[in-house]
């Protein structure tokens, strides 16, 4: 899951970035409106966290511009303004949710999760494909009754594959949503992680859940 944080206050951006990364999100930070708008409209994100008070561009304007560019990524506004009027203006400009500073980080994460499952058919925090079960809250993965311990990246990779089950997930998609885009998608790093993931998931099982589609990517069959 790739998140863009547009926030000019370095220290706030800093702890949000760290906190999200620890939850296996891929995080980009833009410290001003112009960069933020550019990234939001040119990179595919799963979520945008937007501060309203930016030194150059107004957060509301960014929100409008993003929507005008037909980008439907959920937007979570993060601001010190807490009047009803401000909230209405923020939400009406195309944002999906509004959180005032100072905020509880747990609540922030819960809202991030809620926004991420917005376009999903099943709105639970537990994903199930075949006999694999992934709990997004505890980040525990089970196959049958066996708990499987995954590293951060392995978890993010599996979560992404499960969210796109029965679809071909391209290497580009993986590079954009699970890794930072600056990773060269041609390197074999994905193969390494896919290999490890397969190994962990298949321990004691016969069938191959993650299949390669030659020259394109991978598919998780339910």
């Amino acid at each position: 899951m790739r998140v863009l944080v547009i926030e000019d206050e370095k220290r706030i951006a800093n702890f949000i970035e760290r906190g999200l990364k620890e939850e296996a999100y891929v995080v980009d930070v833009a410290s001003n409106g112009v960069d933020g708008l550019f990234q939001a409209t040119n990179v595919t994100y799963d979520l945008i966290v937007l501060d309203l008070m930016l030194p150059d561009l107004n957060g509301i304007d960014i929100c409008r511009e993003v929507r005008r560019a037909k980008v439907n990524t959920p937007i979570l506004i993060l601001t010190a303004r807490d009047s009803v009027q401000d909230k209405v203006r923020g939400l009406d400009s195309g944002a999906d949710d509004y959180l005032t500073k100072p905020f509880s980080f747990d609540e922030f994460l819960a809202r991030v999760r809620a926004l991420l499952r917005k376009n999903r058919a099943v709105k639970t925090t537990t994903l199930r494909i075949g006999d694999i079960e992934l709990d997004q809250l505890t980040r525990k993965v089970k196959r049958g009754d066996t708990e499987i311990h995954l590293a951060n990246k392995e978890y993010a990779l599996l979560e992404y594959l499960m969210l796109h089950a029965n679809q071909v997930v391209t290497r580009t998609m993986i590079s954009e949503h699970v890794w930072h885009e600056d990773f060269d998608s041609l390197t074999n790093i994905f193969d390494v992680y896919i290999h490890r993931l397969r190994k962990k998931l298949n321990e004691g099982f016969d069938d191959q859940l993650i299949q390669s589609v030659r020259g394109v990517g991978y598919v998780l069959q339910g």
Partner: peptide, 21 residues
């Protein structure tokens, strides 16, 4: 209130993130 919110948000966020694990 507004100006005090930013440092408060930083303190709270920093502490919460630190305590998560």
């Amino acid at each position: 209130a507004h100006e005090l919110r930013t440092p408060l948000a930083i303190i709270r966020g920093e502490a919460e993130v630190a305590l998560r694990r």
